[in-house]
Amino acid sequence: MQPDVPTASCCGEADAYFADEIHVRDGKTYAIITDDRPDEPRGRPHVDIGTEIEVPDHKLKWDKGNPTGHGIIFLSRNRYVFCYVQPGGA
């Protein structure tokens, strides 16, 4: 669920990208796309590996991890950030 809209889902194959690198610069959080999985089976637009996406603070989900072992950023087709979920946990 989206951290700032807890009734709205942010999870779906068509908007999920591995983003295992995350850093803070000038007080802003950035996730780096590291996903090399094919886009077509997931029905998602392509985002190049190494693309840096600013993640607004209210879109950071730190209360629960995910079981994939990857950080995941969920993006709309125009790259609006639904949420960033840290790796690990359940």
Rank of each mutant, 00 (worst) to 15 (best):
M1C: 03
M1V: 07
Q2Y: 00
Q2V: 00
D4K: 01
D4N: 08
D4V: 03
V5S: 14
V5Q: 13
T7F: 06
T7G: 12
T7S: 13
A8S: 13
A8Q: 15
A8K: 15
C10A: 10
C10N: 07
C11P: 00
C11R: 04
C11L: 09
G12Q: 07
A14K: 12
A14L: 06
D15N: 15
A16R: 11
A16G: 15
Y17Q: 09
Y17G: 11
Y17D: 09
F18K: 14
F18W: 08
A19N: 05
A19P: 07
D20R: 09
E21I: 12
I22W: 05
V24C: 08
R25K: 12
D26I: 06
D26A: 13
G27W: 11
G27C: 10
G27L: 10
K28N: 13
K28Q: 15
T29L: 10
Y30P: 11
Y30H: 14
I32E: 10
T34A: 07
D35R: 08
D36T: 12
D36P: 06
R37W: 09
R37C: 07
P38Q: 11
D39A: 14
D39T: 11
D39N: 15
D39S: 12
E40P: 02
E40L: 11
P41T: 09
P41M: 04
R42D: 09
G43R: 10
R44W: 08
R44D: 07
R44C: 06
P45I: 14
P45K: 15
P45D: 12
H46N: 09
H46C: 00
H46P: 00
V47Y: 12
V47T: 14
D48K: 13
I49Y: 02
G50K: 03
G50R: 06
T51A: 08
T51V: 07
T51H: 01
E52A: 11
I53D: 07
E54F: 01
V55H: 00
V55P: 01
V55C: 03
V55A: 02
P56D: 07
P56M: 06
D57T: 01
D57N: 00
H58N: 15
H58D: 15
H58S: 14
K59C: 06
K59E: 01
K59P: 03
L60H: 02
L60K: 04
K61G: 00
D63P: 04
K64P: 00
K64A: 11
K64D: 11
K64Q: 13
G65M: 11
G65K: 10
T68V: 03
G69Q: 02
G69E: 03
G69T: 01
H70F: 07
H70Q: 05
H70G: 04
H70W: 09
H70V: 05
G71T: 00
I72H: 04
I72R: 05
I73G: 01
I73H: 04
F74E: 02
F74D: 02
L75R: 02
L75V: 04
R77M: 02
R77G: 04
R77I: 00
N78T: 14
R79Y: 04
R79T: 10
V81A: 01
F82N: 01
F82K: 00
F82H: 03
F82Y: 15
F82V: 01
C83P: 01
C83D: 01
C83A: 14
C83S: 03
C83V: 02
Q86C: 04
Q86I: 13
P87M: 04
G89N: 12
G89S: 10
G89W: 11
A90T: 13
A90N: 13
A90H: 13
A90E: 14
